[in-house]
Amino acid sequence: MSTAELTAQDAELPKDLVDTFIDMAAHEHHPRGAAIEALRLVQERFGWINDAHLAHTARILGMSQADLDGIATYFNLLFRKPVGKNVVMLCDSVSCYIMGAEQTRERLCRKLGVKMGETTPDGEFTVLPIVCLGHCDHAPAMLVGKDLFGPVRPEDIDGIIDDIRARKK
């Protein structure tokens, strides 16, 4: 399912997620202790967290929507807007900066034809800056989905992106 299809918001979360959340809530000392993990799971399933899913999660955890959204908007890895199929996160912290991350970023943006924070028109890629990925010994570092890359020099970008495009086909 693409994120674009999901913008027509599903009002309810699927049963298995609901069960998981109820389970998690029961295991936490207080249901709200499961909040961040629940939102992560919603995002893992749907790519991002839409209003309806947020509201449903809040109900399960006995929180208000304002309360849960206060959390969802606080943490930078939780997306409250649709993102592309592949979220490309390029480290913009200090070691990568020293090792030329800004050049890599320019190349990446040019390759995909977007600015940081944007999604390609085909919905394949969203590029975001990220703080230090703990891969400073392989700087510049980049995370695509769950895959860690590094060092990513400008000349490596085409290969990585083309590979992902090819893999998805």
């Binding site: 929507q65 304002a66 206060g70």
Partner: peptide, 25 residues
């Protein structure tokens, strides 16, 4: 609103110097 009066529908959103105080909508 929340801690003292127990209201549920006012919150803080986002972070750093972008924090927002209001309802979720």
């Amino acid at each position: 609103y929340r801690d003292y009066a127990g209201g549920q529908d006012l919150g803080v959103f986002a972070s750093h110097n972008n924090v927002y105080f209001g309802r979720h909508e």
